[in-house]
Every structure is written in structure tokens, then in C-alpha cells.
Amino acid sequence: MIAKTTRRRTVSSLVMGLCIAATLFGLGWLFLILGTLLIKGVQGLSFAVFTQMTPAPGNQGGLLNAIIGSLTMTLFGVLIGTPVGMMAGIYMAEYGRGSRLVSTVRFVNDILLSAPSIIIGLFVYQLYVAEVHHFSGVAGIIALAIMVVPVVVRTTEDMLLLVPSAMTEAASAMGLPRSVVITRIGLRAAKAGLITGVLLAIARVSGETAPLLFTALNNQFWSWNLNGPVASLPIVIFQFALSPYKDWQQLAWTGALLITTTVLVLSITARILGAQRTGK
């Protein structure tokens, strides 16, 4: 009897020990990846990175065109995707609550949220690039906007459902039209959550590579022309890291550090904002 109890205790401690080991394992990779990134990336960090174009192999250069390209495409992608996602989220949480259409949209949206991003790239290629016969920044923006929509739909619906109904009912009782109740009361009450959603969407999109591969392609040079190929950080990292040139690989590491820092800062900010909301 005692032996059995001891054995059960030992098994339990053993498994719990393994759980702790699993956690250390997971955290270990995080620190390992971030650590290497920091060490390798900082080596190449210089003023030139932010002021010069991507160079030919063996030349001095930076990542300016890639940074600008990424910023522009992310900005426009988010500017297009956010209103669409928010409107859809508003319909799901306010007008169509509980309807069949809404549960279908939610189901499809959740699949879009996890669908392989390279499929989005293929879709935009078929839809736009194949039609106009050239790669372009516009195509990249469309692809990124499509990636933004499901993230924003999800958070908008969730956050609006959290708004106390007493608040919106009070507004309705005063005779305000539904649209005003939603925009002035609902959206305002859910503001922190909505910002969290948009930040998460930016974080997700700014590191995306696969949907840009055959939409925006790449551009060695400065380009404000969104109708032509546009460089972006992830694609430049992809291309430079797989090249045999040491200086290109160094630039890839530096670019990787820049992207990761941006993405992690965005997602941590989003989490802090989110925590403030639920903390109340």
C-alpha cells in the first residue's frame, strides 16, 4: 500500500518535472532565437542601413528601399483591410447576431485566419497579377489587406460583444439611430480592444513573406511606383540570406532583427493594451 502510494507520487512528480522541462524547452528556443538575432543583427547595424539602397554584392549598402517598401505596403494594406474587417465585425456583433449568415461568416473567417498565407499570394496572383501581367506593389497591398481582414473581424466582433448591453440600450432608448449607437457608443467603449486587434494585424502582416513573393516581388532600387515591383524587408531577407555573399547575408540578419523587433514590440504593446481592458 505504502509502496503503491510512493510509486504514484513518484510518477506524478516525474510527469510534473517533464512539464517544467517542456516549458524550459519552449522558452529556451525563444531566447536562443532572439539571442542569435540580436548578436548577428547588431553587428551589421549602422546608419547606412537606414539611408542607403540594397547594394549589389560586394558593395556598401543598406535596406532603405526595403524598409520604405514594407512600410508603404503594410500601411496601405492595413488602411484597406481594417475598415472592411471592422464593418464586417460590426455586422456580426450588432445586426446579424445569432443569424445563420453570421455563424457562416465566423466559420469562414476563422479558416481564413489560419489558412496558409502562400495561398493568399496565389489568389492575388491569379486575381490581379495574371490579369495586368506584371508584379506590383498594388498586388502586394491587396494580399496584405486580405491577411488583415480576418484578424480585425475577429477582434471587432469579440470586443463589441463585450460592451455592456445596458450602455447601448440606454443610447437606443434616447432615440439615437442604430448606426450612431454603434459608432458613438459601441466602438468607443471597445476602443482599446479594437486598437489591440489592429496592432496584432500590423504585427502579423509586417513579417509576412509568402504572400509577397509573387505579388510585389522585389526591387533592387528605390521605387515610389506602386504599380511596379516594390522591395520589402521579408523578401530582401529571403533573397539575401540564401545568397552566397557574406555582406548580403549580414544585411539579411540586420533586416531580420529590425522586423522581429518591430513585430515583438507591436505584439507586446497589443497585449498590454488588452490586459488593461480585461484588468478593469
Binding site: L27, G207, A241, W253, A256, V263, L264
Partner: peptide, 26 residues
């Protein structure tokens, strides 16, 4: 709980291409 949970979730935030470059070179 919160810090460890967030740290694990950050693994999901690291862009795919970073795993690629880290995987290839390290």
C-alpha cells in the same frame, strides 16, 4: 503565469522568415 504565457505566445509572433534564417544559419 502571465510572463511565461506571453513568452510562449511570442514564439508565435516571430515571423516565419526569421525561423528560416535562424534555422539555416544556426
Amino acid at each position: 503565469r502571465r510572463p511565461v504565457g506571453i513568452a510562449i505566445e511570442l514564439l508565435a509572433g516571430i515571423p516565419s522568415i526569421i525561423y528560416g534564417i535562424w534555422g539555416l544559419f544556426v
